[in-house]
Design a protein around this nucleic acid. Structure first.
Lengths: 236, 236
DNA sequence: GGCTTTCGCTACGCGTCGTAGCGTAACTGG
DNA sequence: CCAGTTACGCTACGACGCGTAGCGAAAGCC
């Protein structure tokens, strides 16, 4: 499930001896999340996690290099729940994924762990790669999915240059993820429906204006009338 | 200089006894930044900071509650350098402040400290208030300054409703600061001139489309011809 | 049944934390 | 000038988490 797990047990190695308990893995990661809720990042100790999981402390050190790696794997599992909703229009899709991402950031486990492991990763290159593969890349795929859907719908133009397309995808990803994280964790203000709507409107009209340098296509900021999931609401 | 300092020495208290050494404050904060560069956030110890600063460890604990508070004050001083450039147009102003902010985030002290204290602040309300007052509010003022300048220039419409104006200012702030931080620290990719230009174009065309619901005003995405600080460059 | 690897357990040295206690230094008001 | 008050440097201390070593037992594969 989590990408960073088979990095230690290379399947090409000789396969003799007692296998690692998969149940212990689940127990440890779940205990880690529970400890994050109760204690937060700094007060979390590996000994406490071991006690909660019902395993020996040495078992933890045999599988993970340190606290950071363990927590990355523990919170990475939560990002499996993050999916791109298919609501019929690009605008409501973005609003939906923003709200889901914000709900994930609102959980006490992720709230205290995410920024901490990113902070650690600034001085630890292997950890940064682990964060990228386990968490960041999983979010970025949602952007690529959303763009492809929108292009099929005709809501976004197809960029011919793949390098330029990758640059805009990276830009959009940093804008979405960065804005939500900053709103939720730095400004510490709620990411509610109204904020998501305003943010999406800002982003989409910006995209429409910059992507199509020529005459703009249909208005992307609002879903078409009769949206299946949510009726369009006139802003007062 | 730093806002959180006079919270302990209330000037209304009785003023007898030996005054606190101001030189020690500077030495401690500078030693903290040096230790952040050499050791990073986690390996930084208060005993080491005390040794570098040439003061006793107990002096540190008399002035700051813990590592987080000390680091917040240490990096908050660096944010004094952050200013809004006056380049003649809103677009180049934003590009300039984005590059300056990114340069600040590129320094090893802030890189490792900023995310760490934000992570701490998620489980520590007094610390969150300290971060807000010392660091976040200082950045947000740049947004308000930039908007006012742009309104004087006629580049942005004046929003009559103060509540709505505050909401858009908060939104723009989270988008700018969030995107730059995410690009620099999470994606770990360079915030260079080209990225700043693309991001600014995205933001400004979004602002122009959403703010003026009626007919759009002048094109905000590019400075007027003959910009005093930087000649406009055609994107290939 | 032998080989290999994992697991639980105990114990250990090490470093940091945060505080207490003491004598001294600096500054103020009478 | 002297008593009062506060900050400072220094030492020492208990507490705690870290990460590792060593052992016997368990659980698989050939």
């Amino acid at each position: 499930m989590v990408a960073g797990m088979q990095s230690r047990s290379t399947p090409s190695a000789r396969a003799g001896g007692r296998p690692r308990s998969a149940a212990a893995d689940h127990a440890i990661l779940e205990a880690t999340r529970a400890a994050l809720v109760d204690l937060g990042w700094t007060k979390l100790t590996l000994g406490d996690v071991a006690t909660r999981a019902g395993v020996a402390k040495t078992t933890l050190y045999r599988r993970w290099a340190g606290k950071s790696e363990l927590v990355v794997d523990a919170v990475a599992e939560l990002f499996d729940e993050l999916e791109l909703p298919d609501s019929g229009s690009l605008a409501t899709d973005i609003e939906g994924v923003v709200l889901r991402f914000a709900a994930l950031l609102g959980r006490p486990e992720t709230k205290t762990a995410l920024m901490a492991v990113v902070a650690e990763s600034t001085t630890d290159a292997p950890l940064r790669e682990r964060v990228r593969a386990s968490i960041v890349e999983r979010q970025k795929r949602l952007v690529l999915e959303g763009r492809q859907r929108a292009q099929v719908r005709g809501e976004l133009p197809v960029e011919p240059d793949p390098a330029a397309a990758a640059r805009t995808a990276d830009l959009v990803f940093d804008v979405i993820a960065g804005a939500v994280v900053h709103r939720a964790l730095v400004s510490a203000e709620p990411v509610d429906t109204e904020w998501a709507r305003r943010f999406t409107a800002l982003l989409l009209s910006g995209l429409a204006a910059t992507a199509g340098t020529g005459p703009a296509g249909p208005d992307l900021s609002r879903p078409p009338a009769g949206s299946p999931t949510r009726p369009p609401v006139q802003p007062h």
